[in-house]
Structures are given as structure tokens and as C-alpha cells.
Design a protein around this nucleic acid. Structure first.
Lengths: 221, 221
DNA sequence: GCGCGAGTGGAACACCCCGTCCGTTTCGGC
DNA sequence: GCCGAAACGGACGGGGTGTTCCACTCGCGC
């Protein structure tokens, strides 16, 4: 995306359109993106644009000149993580042990969602018209589909597991809430471990990660 | 709750304060509540108050006279389901087979959350200051805690399972989204079945409920 | 019937949000 | 230094939501 800009060629890895910006503008853009990533991770995607601008020390107009819409900002903020996510999938698919690959990718993607509240929203695409991620996602899902089949054949994964189950587990994982990011991460870890046991054909092994006190129980002291 | 109202005695089952209303007012109140339950179940709790009023065929003022705040409306709308939920817990705790009781309560509470998007929000208490449900919830959690212990002792439940896990599973279940209520219910059913396998000490038995196509996969046709 | 007060609905208030306009500031090539 | 264009930020418009005000209506006891 944004390759259809009026630029001759891409010099760096993935610089969208920030090569001919004035120095101050470039600084501002970088700061905005940095702040956005931080806020989105901490508070989710529903943070007002004003707040992002305020914390970045710029006016709303500056924010909107660089990112014409909130969707654009969100997309850009999570591009990196999306790439990471895809890399995780690729690594998993390339793993000679398909069951270990599947296990690992579930663990890691779940961890990413637990660590970054906003990423989940971007992943599920809070902006349905954002086709940006859709294509990469399709590719990843197809690859995972193959991995699942191989994991079944090689052993380790129960034979009635399907791709939809993978999506279902990721969604369920993202439903976990807690009072702090650390708590969410810890709870997610235990949850995933439990998941893996339920979709594995192998016998139970080793202790689960520790349980975590969740908000609903706060009333109990 | 609301027993501390200024009424002499409860004539009917659980009439909050609707005993001396004019007939039309009573009709309106009932209709509002009925509409609210329906909308909340279908679209979640974020429906504007105006919309509830509109669908109930009344003006916003009427709605606000009966329910002074949105929180009050939500609380009242879900009181019944909360009671059902507590009854489920009581039944589970009373089950002579603790593992079956636990299994059943997980299945049923999960189903309730899947069937009613709004209930989840009310359950997790989208309004933190709503202490209304907090007390019953505490009682239920304590009871469940005992049930869990007995299920471990009697066999069936893995020994490292704790109350927080139960909350975690319910939360995770509520993270499941789909394009229709039916799809959510079906996916939830499969999810719960998977859960129960992971927390059970008994060997795998019988087929899982069918998988469900989830929104993320829509791109794959 | 009749009248009074509970009940009502539409407009309005206060607030928040996304996105834009415009007069001013600042970079950076000369 | 200088000066034009790029960049800036505060104010503004449009839309949406929870909640309230107020003049009018209508059940219901007499």
C-alpha cells in the first residue's frame, strides 16, 4: 500500500512517503507514530486522535496531515507487528516438526495479542474497509491450513482440528481482560497452555503456567 | 437489591418499584424493558438510549423517568438473567456429581454469554460502580470455589485447576465473535467442549460439536 | 364529566469525537 | 539574512450520545 505514491523508487526498507519531508515534519511524524503505538498498546484503539496528538506534542492538524484518517494511523502503527506476525507464521510453517510449529505460532500470536490491546482490534480489523491487511492475512491462513494438515499427519494434533479452531482460539484468547498488561499476558499464557493440551493427542506434560487473579474476582479481596 | 425501597411488602415475585404506576406508565415501562432486553441481546450494550426509546415507541424523557441512567436500565434488563445464572450455579453446586455439576455450569453460563452479547458486558460490569450484581457474584464465586474443590477430590477435574481459571474460561468464551448469534452459539459450544477436555482428567470421549466458520476467514470464501 | 397531577415526547443542553480551515511560524536553499 | 513554500496549531463544523427541560396530554379518582 501507498506504493502508488508519486515517488520514483523505494530506497529504504519500507518508508511510505517520509523521504522528502522537512526535518521537523519528519521528527513529528516519527514521534506521532511512536506515541500512537504506545497508547494503542496500552489503552486500545479507541483513544481519541486528539489524545495521540497531545501526547506527541503536536496539533490535530499535524497529525491529520501525515495520517489523513484514523484508520491510516492505526494501519501504519501496526504494520510492523503485522509483519512480525506474518514472519511468525512463516517460521512456524517452515518448522520441520509441524506440531511444534503450530504450537509455537499459537503461543506467540496469542502473546502478541495479550501484550497489545490495540493489535487485536487492528488484527480483527476494526475498520472493515481496511483491505490493507486482508491479503497478507489470507496468505497466512492458507499457509496455516497446510501446517495444520501436516501436524495431523505427523502426529501431535487431534484429527478433528480445523483452521476455524485456530481462529477461534485466537479470538478467545483476546477476550481475556485483566487490570494490567502483565496480568493479561500471564493469564493468556496459562490459557494457551490449557488450549494446547486440549488440541494435542500427546499426554499431558509438565505443570501449567501460574494462574492469575482476574478482575471479576477483585470483589473477593 | 432494591429491597431497601419504600414499599411495605413484595406482592409479586420481584417488582422493583412499579406498583403504583399509572396503567399507561406501567405499559411503557414493560415495553421499554422488553425492547431493551431484545436490543441488548442482539447488538450489545452500546445501543444508544434514544434507539431503545424509539423502538419502544416512547420519548427519551419517558425512558429516563423510569430508568434514571443507562446503567439503571442495563442493570434492570439483565436482572432476570443474573438470577438465572445464579440458579445455574446453585444447581451445579447441588449436583451430587461435582465434576458433572462443574461441567454443566460452564456449558450453560458460556451458552448464556454466547446467546446474549449484552449479558457479557453486564456480567463483566461495563459499569464498574454498579455494585448491584457484585454481591450475588461474590456468593456465586465462593460456591463455585467449593464445587471446584469437590470436583478435584471426587475426580474428573485436574488438580491444578483454580477458580481464576473458571473466570478465565468464561472471559475467553465471551471473546468469540461471529457474524450471527447462531454462529457464536455454535462456535462457543465447540470451544467449551475443547475447554472441558483440557481441564478434565478423564480420557477424551465422543466427537466435538461441529466447527464454525468465523469472520476472519470470510476472506477465504 | 371534570380537574389535577402523574406522565409524556420533542427540543435542547453539555460533552466528546473525527476531520478541516486558516492565519502564523519555521525550515532550508540561495 | 531572506523569502517562499512547507509545516504548524488553535479554532471550527458536523455528527453522535447521555441526560434534562418544559409545555402539553391523558389516566383516573371524584
Amino acid at each position: 500500500m501507498t506504493e502508488h505514491e508519486s515517488e520514483p523508487a523505494g530506497t529504504t526498507v519500507a518508508a511510505p512517503a517520509a523521504h522528502e519531508l522537512r526535518s521537523d515534519a519528519r521528527d513529528n511524524r516519527d514521534r506521532i507514530l511512536q506515541v500512537a503505538r504506545s497508547i494503542f498498546a496500552e489503552e486500545g484503539i479507541d483513544v481519541p486522535m486528539r489524545e495521540v496528538a497531545r501526547r506527541a506534542g503536536v496539533g490535530p492538524a499535524t497529525l491529520y496531515r501525515r495520517f489523513p484518517t484514523k484508520e491510516a494511523l492505526v494501519t501504519e502503527a501496526f504494520r510492523e507487528q503485522m509483519a512480525t506476525c506474518n514472519a511468525l507464521v512463516d517460521a512456524a510453517v517452515a518448522d520441520p516438526d509441524p506440531w511444534r510449529g503450530l504450537r509455537t505460532v499459537i503461543e506467540q500470536v496469542s502473546a502478541m495479542h495479550a501484550e497489545d490491546r490495540g493489535f487485536t482490534a487492528a488484527f480483527v480489523s476494526a475498520f472493515p474497509q481496511a483491505v490493507d491487511f486482508a491479503q497478507e492475512r489470507s496468505r497466512a491462513l492458507v499457509a496455516l491450513s497446510g501446517l495444520i494438515q501436516r501436524a495431523k499427519d505427523a502426529g501431535g494434533l487431534r484429527r478433528d482440528f480445523v483452521l476455524d479452531d485456530l481462529v477461534m482460539l485466537i479470538m478467545a484468547n483476546s477476550g481475556i481482560r485483566a487490570t494490567s498488561r502483565e496480568a493479561v499476558v500471564a493469564a493468556s499464557r496459562r490459557f494457551v497452555a490449557l488450549q494446547l493440551r486440549s488440541i494435542s493427542t500427546r499426554p499431558d506434560d509438565g505443570p501449567l503456567p501460574p494462574a492469575v487473579r482476574l478482575p471479576l474476582l477483585a470483589a473477593l479481596r
